[in-house]
Write a protein that binds this DNA or RNA. Structure first.
Length: 258
DNA sequence: ATGGCTGAGCTACTCAGA
């Protein structure tokens, strides 16, 4: 089963790229972040033509997440945590893998910059609530997959110039500790688990030729509960979509589980 | 290099992103 996560930076501005990408990679489940549209303007029909059902948690202008799936999904939910600002950042569903029932969680974590503002506090509180909820889910189900745009640089090698980000909301130790806290509940960062020292990124700024110079960062992640590690077939950051015309600033990360 | 692109909403500009 191929599951892909991609922050598309507007689903409507990116629809042709997304359709091309789906035809190329044929995912079973595609998790989108930053769709930047309300549910009623989501391109359901175009994705239906490719054989996918869309489950959308949208919002006007900003944020918004969606799950696009070949098979119909059960228990789709938009209120995983109570969001302090009522922003659309989490959509969950139930996924079946052989005999295992997996809780699938698609997230778009707040950015949190600048760090001396309420935006940073919002990110911290959001992560705190999220961790509390994950602990609770674990009590009933050991099989959890968290995927999406975490807006967290886990380690120094996950960014081209760590010094620039060590006091940034993406790289601050306080935030990276939250990431470790999730991992320590019983997860693997699948990319890092499979690639101990490899330096690859999932995001490059639009400006200053960041893509051409490979000034990027790895902030889109798949966290798989330890009970599912044996099911990993492959993990891959696919840089092709970032090189296309009119790209998102993020590129997809692709997980295959069996 | 704390904003030099990009997108949404709207029709001139601000807000947001990381």
């Amino acid at each position: 089963m191929k599951i892909i996560s991609w922050n598309v930076n507007s689903v409507r501005a990116r629809i042709e790229n997304i359709k091309d990408y789906i035809k190329d990679t044929n995912p079973d489940v595609l998790l989108l972040q930053e769709i930047k549209t309300q549910n009623e303007n989501f391109p359901n029909d175009e994705l239906k033509k490719l054989g996918y059902t869309s489950y959308v948690f949208g919002q006007k202008s900003y944020n918004g997440v969606a799950i696009i799936s070949k098979n119909e999904l059960k228990n789709v939910n938009n209120n995983f945590i109570k969001d302090d600002l009522n922003q659309s950042r989490i959509i969950t569903a139930e996924l079946k893998l052989k005999k295992k029932k997996i809780v699938l969680i698609n997230i778009y974590v707040p950015n949190g910059n600048p760090v001396d503002t309420e935006k940073y506090e919002y990110k911290k509180n959001w992560l705190k609530k999220f961790i509390t909820k994950i602990k609770k889910i674990f009590e009933n189900n050991p099989n959890i997959l968290i995927a999406g745009d975490f807006n967290i640089i886990p380690e120094e090698l996950d960014v081209h110039d760590f010094k620039r980000y060590e006091n940034d909301a993406l790289g601050r130790l306080e935030i990276r500790k939250k990431y470790r806290e999730i991992i320590n509940l019983g997860f693997k960062d699948v990319y890092r688990f499979k690639n101990k020292t490899k330096q690859e990124y999932t995001f490059w700024d639009y400006f200053a030729g960041s893509w051409q110079k490979n000034y990027g960062m790895r902030i889109d992640h798949f966290l798989l509960s330890n009970s599912l590690i044996e099911n990993i077939k492959s993990i891959n950051i696919n840089k092709k979509p970032r090189s296309k015309e009119k790209p998102s600033d993020h590129t997809p990360i692709e997980l295959e589980i069996i």
